[in-house]
Amino acid sequence: MPTRQTTAARHRADGRAHTVLTDARLTAAHNFSSATRRTGAAVASSGLAVSLLAAPALADDEVRTTAVDVSALTQSARAIVEAAPVVASPAEASWTFENPAVTAVTPPPPPPPVVEEEPEPEPEEAASRSRSAEPAAPAAEPAPAAVGAPAPASANGSAIVEIASSLVGIPYVWGGTTPSGFDCSGFTSYVYAQVGITLPRTSGDQRYAGVEVPRDQAQPGDLIWSPGHISIYAGGNLQVDAPTPGKSIQIREIWQSNPKFIRVG
Rank of each mutant, 00 (worst) to 15 (best):
Ala193Tyr: 08
Val173Cys: 03
Pro171His: 05
Arg201Phe: 04
Thr177Val: 10
Gly169Ile: 05
Ile197Gly: 11
Thr178Ser: 11
Pro179Ser: 12
Ser166Gly: 13
Ile163Arg: 15
Ala218Met: 03
Tyr208Gln: 14
Val191Gly: 05
Val173Ala: 11
Arg207Met: 09
Ser166Asn: 11
Gly157Asp: 07
Gly196Leu: 08
Gly157Ala: 01
Glu162Tyr: 06
Val173Gly: 00
Leu199Asp: 04
Pro171Met: 03
Phe182Thr: 10
Gln206Thr: 14
Ala218Gly: 08
Gly204Asp: 13
Gly157Met: 02
Tyr172Gly: 02
Ser180His: 09
Glu212Thr: 15
Glu162Leu: 09
Ser203Pro: 04
Gln217Leu: 02
Arg201Trp: 01
Ala193Ile: 12
Gln194Phe: 06
Thr177Ser: 12
Val168Lys: 09
Tyr208Asp: 14
Thr202Cys: 01
Ile170Glu: 05
Ser166Ala: 12
Gly204Phe: 02
Ile170Tyr: 00
Ala193Gln: 14
Arg215Tyr: 04
Ser158Val: 10
Val173Pro: 00
Thr202Gln: 06
Ala209Phe: 06
Tyr172Trp: 03
Asp216Ser: 14
Phe187Trp: 01
Ile160Ser: 12
Glu212Gly: 06
Arg207Asp: 05
Ile160Lys: 10
Ser189Gly: 15
Ser189Thr: 14
Thr188Trp: 01
Tyr190Gly: 12
Trp174Glu: 06
Pro179Val: 03
Ser158Leu: 01
Tyr208Phe: 13
Ile160Trp: 07
Ser189Asp: 10
Pro171Phe: 02
Gly175Pro: 01
Thr198Asp: 14
Arg215Leu: 03
Gly175Cys: 02
Glu212Phe: 02
Pro179Gly: 11
Ala159Arg: 15
Tyr208Asn: 15
Thr198Met: 06
Pro200Ser: 11
Tyr190Lys: 10
Arg201Asn: 09
Ala209Cys: 05
Asp205Ser: 15
Pro200Arg: 10
Gly175Ser: 04
Gly169Val: 08
Val168Gln: 12
Gly210Met: 01
Tyr190Ser: 07
Ile170Cys: 01
Thr198Gly: 13
Cys184Asp: 09
Glu162Phe: 03
Arg207Glu: 07
Thr202Val: 09
Leu167Ser: 08
Asp183Lys: 08
Ala209Pro: 05
Pro214Cys: 04
Val161Gly: 10
Ser180Phe: 00
Gln217Thr: 14
Ala159His: 08
Leu167Asn: 10
Glu162Met: 10
Leu167Val: 11
Tyr192Gly: 13
Tyr192Ser: 11
Ile163His: 14
Ser166Phe: 01
Glu162Thr: 15
Asp183Arg: 05
Val161Asp: 08
Ser185Gly: 06
Ser203Arg: 01
